[in-house]
């Protein structure tokens, strides 16, 4: 009996040893996220690295934005997460692993930060692809340290936002000045409801937290009255009509009021390229300005497209704010 017990213990120890050996990767480190040639819609991405502590002492994450972060590898820990900021377009993330001060492995991950507000960055090159993170197989890796469940109570915002499970990894999305209330209060699933729209049908089931595209279906859940008001109008701006709110607005937080992705004039000019003679060109070739001067009709503000046009809907052609051209002129040009 005694002998038997000893054998049991021994075999258990052996199994544990074997399994722990098996679990460790054979290379110094492995990049789990981002994948090579990944598309990023936010201006940040989290770098998740799995290490083998016996083959690496520390590693350095750097990119072209003067970022360089050294992370020491602990023998008790296998996975490391770092959030890094991205520039629009191509980004290279360099990960260099060191052992005893000697470079043992280096890897370059390419990430493309896309934005619908910039024509040149709207469509990433073909080789880039989306990486859907929140699915069962990938979440298993994180679940060892992070609570991957949704702890949000429907209809109630967090009293202390840091208690949100989403906040643990995604805190950076809400750090800009103008925060969209559901985002900065971590009511993530009110938009990330896992459903897909007609523009992203193919994404169905790829991640738990899908957002429908066009996003309007979720936006208008809250902004119901605004939508009703717009629908009463004769003309609607095309993105309003098909619910592509995210073409101009960022959904989480932004540097600008109304969560605009760019300043108003630039934002409009992403799609509406105007030549020199917008509004009027006088006999002597002098153009009417569309920016860079004070707006007499809106004291304290600069002239931009919003001086004359509504951005969403209007009863007047060209979404003008006044019924006729003449009314538009006398708004500023008073006798």
């Amino acid at each position: 009996m005694k002998h038997n017990n000893f054998f049991c213990k021994f075999s258990l120890l052996g199994f544990l040893l074997y399994s722990s050996l098996f679990a460790q990767i054979s290379e110094p480190f492995k990049v789990i996220n981002p994948i090579q040639y990944q598309i990023a819609e936010e201006d940040t991405t989290s770098v998740v690295i799995e290490t083998n502590s016996s083959l690496i002492d520390y590693f350095v994450i750097s990119n072209d934005l003067n970022l360089s972060r050294r992370i020491d590898v602990d023998s008790n820990r296998s996975h490391y997460c770092e959030v890094i900021y991205l520039e629009l377009g191509d980004n290279k993330i360099y990960i260099d692993g060191f052992k005893d001060g000697v470079l043992v492995k280096n890897k370059v991950q390419k990430v493309f930060h896309t934005s619908s507000a910039y024509k040149e960055y709207k469509y990433p090159p073909n080789k880039y692809d989306f990486n859907y993170f929140h699915n069962e197989s990938k979440e298993k890796v994180c679940a060892t340290c992070h609570n991957m469940s949704v702890n949000e109570v429907k209809g109630y915002a967090f009293e202390d936002v840091t208690k949100s499970n989403c906040y643990q990894c995604h805190s950076h999305i809400a750090e800009k000045d103008h925060g969209h209330a559901p985002a900065v209060n971590w009511l993530c699933t009110s938009c990330h409801n896992g459903e897909v729209g007609k523009f992203n049908r193919f994404e169905k089931g790829k991640t738990r937290f899908n957002v429908p595209d066009p996003i309007g279906t979720v936006c208008f859940n809250c902004h119901k009255k605004t939508k009703e008001n717009w629908e009463k109008k004769l003309f609607q701006h095309e993105p309003v009509e098909n619910g592509s709110c995210d073409r101009c607005h960022s959904s989480h937080s932004s540097k600008r009021a109304s969560y605009l992705k760019k300043p108003v004039w630039d934002l409009c000019h992403t799609c509406h390229k105007i030549d020199g003679s917008h509004v009027i060109k006088t006999l002597f070739g002098k153009k009417h300005p569309t920016k860079g001067v004070k707006d007499p009709s809106r004291p304290g503000k600069e002239l931009d497209c919003m001086s004359c046009h509504y951005s969403h809907a209007s009863d007047n052609v060209s979404l003008l704010k006044g019924k006729s051209n003449f009314i538009m002129c006398i708004k500023c040009h008073k006798k």
Binding site: G155, Y156, A157, F158, E159, A181, P182, N185, L187, S190, N221, C222, H223, K224
Partner: peptide
């Protein structure tokens, strides 16, 4: 909590 569009914000 204040109710804004059906969601209660503290």
């Amino acid at each position: 909590y204040t109710d804004f569009n059906g969601i209660k914000f503290p």
